[in-house]
Amino acid sequence: MFSYFANPERFQNLAKWLVPPLGVLGLLGIAIGFGGGLFFTPVDYQQGEAVRMMYVHVPAAWLASFAYAFMAMASLISFVWRHNLADAAAKAAAPLGASFTFLALLTGALWGKPMWGAYWVWDARLTSMLVMLFLYLGYMAVRNIVPDEARAARLAAITAMVGAINLPIIKFSVDWWSSLHQPSSVFRAGGSAIDSTMLWPLLIGALGYTAFFGWLVLVQMQTELDRRKIARLQRRMAGGRVSRPEAAQRSLGDD
């Protein structure tokens, strides 16, 4: 299946079909989730109106983790099978994932202030989210600092995979660490049972965020393919004429 979509032509055709509905689904889902969270959900008996911040915080936190898993998978495929498009997908996922990690942290802080009395507490979830932000930043730093595109792609793929191996360990260690410190009375967001009147905007919002992510990843992959075409054309026009079969070969991969 991976090799099937390694062909940029096939990918372009698929992306052309997928991009518009994903965009609509994403924006609509986010709008409904936000509107529902703001106006059409009941007030929590414990948190009051502050519970409305759950509807922007939880989908961001979900997407932050999902985007990392996506990036790590794409990196694995790109590293093992030298799959250019998978690399483009991982590259596209990183800034989105980092942005949503940042959003999760920021909305978490804003939610924490009225609930915990502090913008920042060293809560296990917040802390592992912060570590994940650094993992994203490391990945993006590799891509930015290493000038040779092919080399940067492979080093970044290793970075993403190492991070993915370590994420569960980091999560575990941070849980371990915070269970030593934390007073057990700290309020736990949501708890185990969320009423269905509060659940639907959460689910639609998370779905919207995910579709939005998929949409922008695909768009960035299209941009990446266009950029490669541009580079190829520029190289060809700069002088060295490339024979047809060689050009066809190139468009299939390895450059």
């Binding site: 703001l38 911040m53 922007v56 942005s99 959003l103 909305t107 202030k113 922008l216």
Partner: peptide, 22 residues
Amino acid sequence: MGKYAGFIWASYGVSIVVILGL
């Protein structure tokens, strides 16, 4: 939004700004 209005609008506002910015 009661006494939490500032926090609520700020969290929605910053989310919308980041989403639109991306």
